[in-house]
Amino acid sequence: MNITVSHLSKKYGSLAAVDDLSVEIPAGTIFGLLGPNGAGKTTAFKCMLGLARGSSGGVTFGGKALAPPLFESIAYVPERDVLYDWMRVSELVEMNRRAFARFKADRAFELLATFGIDTRKRARALSKGMKTAVAAAIAFARHADLLVLDEPTSGLDPVNQRHVLNLMVNEAARGATVLFSSHQIGPVERAAERIAVLDRGRLVLEGGIDDLKSGRKIVEAIFPNESYSLDGIAGDPRVGRIDRSGRIVRVMALDAPSEIVQKLEAAGGTGVRIIDLNLEDIFLYAVAPASATADVVEGS
């Protein structure tokens, strides 16, 4: 089920929690929504699912506007307080079995067992991580076409975190679309195919992780003296930013780094090398104010 988000906005007073967000999430992908805390990830999910009043913009799911019957095939797991504290885990499963025709109770119990959860326990007796696991297990038993998971790995130990990621992979292999958010890079970098980075409500970066990694590189060059010109480079649309530190120049290539290499060599740079960026670097470049990163580079 592909999702098309167009010009989604949500304001709290004068503050925009989500600011004109447009993104296309193709069917069958694992899509990671990244952003610092308070970037508007949760609000974006709520707006998409019609849970936030006063939001503007449009969202379609598989070409259709949101309507109650569609929730049969959309599994949403909010970040926290998902479970009724006074209910037993088995009752929570029963609740879902009654609410969703495609819900497989057997599968839910099987998953809960692999997470090591005693289904006779009341939700309030579970640790934070266990609650996350219960919510995830129930969502993965929904046999949904779209899973919207808000911070599905937070509070989980590495074993269960890997387990949740593997279940996401399994859903995607089945053909389902998985949309999840995280403020941690690790889970996204591993499991997601595409990402969107939100910062203060705005979309600052979007694309396939592997494409971003192939395209975005730091190209470093050393010039023989400090009187050099970067005229042809500074204006190139494929250049994200340029950090200078004496004779050393680091250029952020947004695409086609080898051509930037040629340009730097043509400008007289020597020792030109390409530095790979992992998702964390790409993320930080996308969300950090330009001056802050520049300072770090200048100071080093």
């Binding site: 069958g28 694992i30 890997r162 593997n166 992979v169 399994n170 995607a172 292999a173 499991a191 195919e193």
Partner: peptide, 18 residues
């Protein structure tokens, strides 16, 4: 298979397919 390798490595199936 694409699915098996994706699960073994916990990575996106589309990445394996690519």
């Amino acid at each position: 298979t694409v699915k098996q390798l994706a699960l073994d490595l916990t990575i996106n199936p589309n990445t394996v397919a690519r």
